[in-house]
Amino acid sequence: MYPVRYEDMVLTKILESKHLFIWPAFLTVLIVSLFPLVYALIVSFQSIRLVPPIPPRFVGLDNYAEIVSSARFWGSITTTAIIVCISVFLQYVIGFTLALTLHHNVRGASLYRVVFLLPMFLAPVCVALIAKMLFHPVLGPVNDLFTIFGSPNISFLTVPPLAIAVLVIVETWQWTPFVVLLMLAGLQGLPSDVFEAARVDNISIWRRFRDITFPMLLPLSIAVIFIRMIEGFKIVDTVFILTGGGPGTSTETLTLFAYNEGFKKFNMGMTSALSFMFLIVVIVFGSVYLAAAQRIVRRYK
């Protein structure tokens, strides 16, 4: 048998003590995240109503069946998807363009850098309140702008397509800075000599972007769009303030639908089931997106 070395004993002690460091974090995660999740899953299989209180009753998949068969649910998915797809597309295109402009050191770039980031620091509720005033059908400045050109008063927030357009504009305005921030960081991380080589080789600025910058930033672009998509699906405060989901339920998003079920009807079982449906919808959209992105990336790999 080999004699036990002192160093080995110390090492063993360290290896044992690692549990001491892991367990508190693990327990915290268990209590604040895993337990509520499992509890919500159980509730989603029950019929629970807080007002008027009804004792919990196990109903199996009834809640889910009811959701899937309701037109309101599919309507909210469509609304959310439209808002997310259009606004994320605009955020990416505008954000990337701004990042490119800032990267090429326009005069006063440091000032613009700060100004462009400001919308991101505002609470969505504030942004929505400001937007509500801006787009007011009688008093809003946007309406004034249109009336200059002889247009009658436009009720932006009560005509469904216009209301969705306003929501898209607000989302884009608030979250484009996030894209600017990340894409700018990405641009600054690119090796400068590659672009110098292209300049010496007489490659035009557009081809440099199309053939070098864009492919090199593709992995980052995919991540940025993914983050914005997932975040976009969670939109609730903006819609709540601006339209409240109306007119009717024409601008109701998934999360607002769940909120209305939970805090207006106090139908807890249904709300939990909706939350899980939301999770499934996000996973489906996310997977489809990542699969599509993977195909694009493979072209450049």
Partner: peptide, 20 residues
Amino acid sequence: NRPGERDCSMVFQNYALYPH
């Protein structure tokens, strides 16, 4: 003249190849 209009080619210290 712009770099592209000088009909030079350059080899860089860090190779500067297009990575993709």
